[in-house]
Design a protein around this nucleic acid. Structure first.
Lengths: 106, 106
DNA sequence: ATATTATGCAGGTAAATGCCTGCATGTCAA
DNA sequence: TTGACATGCAGGCATTTACCTGCATAATAT
């Protein structure tokens, strides 16, 4: 599980949009997802490819269609590694900031 | 508060490293941060600039030095908007996935 | 069988990114 | 005051990125 790929995948607004769309309705086809995104199908394919590489999306084929499903696990991992870490220190970090800003005013 | 800038800022490993360094010791100078990063001071400045633009880092000048402080608030916002959303649906999303994978095996 | 539909794959391009070098400015200390 | 130190600013360059067009392949429907 490569955190870097997850962050890279989340860095693009189109890809975050795709995750949102899949969250509204999981298991959509490529064509279906394209309808909500103002760009060519090929571009959407590339974005979905990155999401899949980051393991944020899993796919299955149903006949000639490709279904896309969200995998929420990597997001959870990001939370554990990144958000929680700063969350637990949130108050002390904000305290450092406050002290410094007060020094500046004086 | 622009979520896009926050995600873009987090997308680079060097910038995540900088946040980690500041988490270990808040309020470090530019020169100090450079010692732990194998690149020129100017490059580090650029990275810190993006972190500052995303409001993840706040700076103050102390004489000729520039001090850097983490601001944990944007990370919290990202959590609220992105992680929690998928977390609450985590089980049902994984359920969708499981069902689909089972269909494929048969 | 053939037309239609859904997707895959291979370049091509303009802009963004991440790194660098070189020089300028401002602050401290001897 | 002058040399050393900390940072700022401008520009250049190679790579990556996010789009696109054009064509190929595979599955369904008539």
């Amino acid at each position: 599980m490569d955190q870097d790929e997850v962050f890279k995948a989340l860095a693009d607004p189109t890809r975050r949009r795709l995750l949102d769309l899949l969250c509204e309705e999981n298991g959509q086809t490529l064509r279906r997802l394209c309808e909500d995104l103002d760009m060519t199908r090929q571009s959407v394919t590339q974005h979905l490819g990155l999401l899949e590489a980051a393991n944020l999306v899993t796919t299955t084929k149903r006949g000639r269609e490709k279904l896309h499903f969200i995998n929420p696990v990597p997001l959870q991992d990001v939370y554990e590694r990144w958000i929680r870490k700063f969350e637990t220190q949130r108050l002390s970090l904000l305290h450092d900031l406050k002290i410094q800003l007060e020094k500046n005013e004086s």
